[in-house]
Amino acid sequence: MKRENWLILILAVVFIFPMACAKKQVVVPSAVSEQPAAPKAEAEKAITVTGEKEEGAVEGLEEKISEEELAKQEKMKREEILKQEIASFENEDIYFDFDKYNIRPDAAEVLKRKAEWLKQHPNVHILIEGHCDEWGSEEYNLALGERRANSTREFLINLGVNPECVSTISYGEERPTVVPPAYCENVRQFLLNRGLRPNHAPVSVTGTKITLEMINTCESAWAKNRRCHFVVVKY
């Protein structure tokens, strides 16, 4: 074999081998599942070794420790406050109209507050989850959910939030926060027969099996699922 050929062969092995490894292949007899992550045992072992206590601490370090303790407590307090702020940040979703992904005025209010907080905490990284109600096809809703997440992200960036701290994901209609009661199917039929979409004007229900209460329940369930949810992934 010529020298060049050997070189090509070695290069091929060097490049192709990691590529082949990138795709995990697993053989499972009955159903197909993906390979589990690297065995945990090794990692745990490593932790227990370094975590062993050093006995016989030197005297005279007590004062220093108490100072450190104070700083620690201060830090913990700050962390506690931050955690509460994160919880309230994550608790507040923004909502969208049916089959739409533009930011509504009520959502804009929420986003302005969120943007201020994010700018005060430049270390915080967030994930915006786009969600949809169950009207329409799964595939279309995956795309719609991403549109919602993207327009939310754009809105935050326009308010001065660092783009690198905001990522998005779409869950389409796969993770509804509220599952509407079964009778909502009839309510939807009722509304559509009157040419109404979600977010409609007041409607008369006299002479039907539908009550205003039922309509409100369904409407609010659907509306709650047309949302973006916020998750703090790093702080």
Binding site: V28, V32, E34, E139, Y171, E174
Partner: peptide, 9 residues
């Protein structure tokens, strides 16, 4: 066919 314990579509 799958046992991904996830959302498959």
């Amino acid at each position: 066919l799958t046992r991904f314990r996830s959302i498959c579509l």
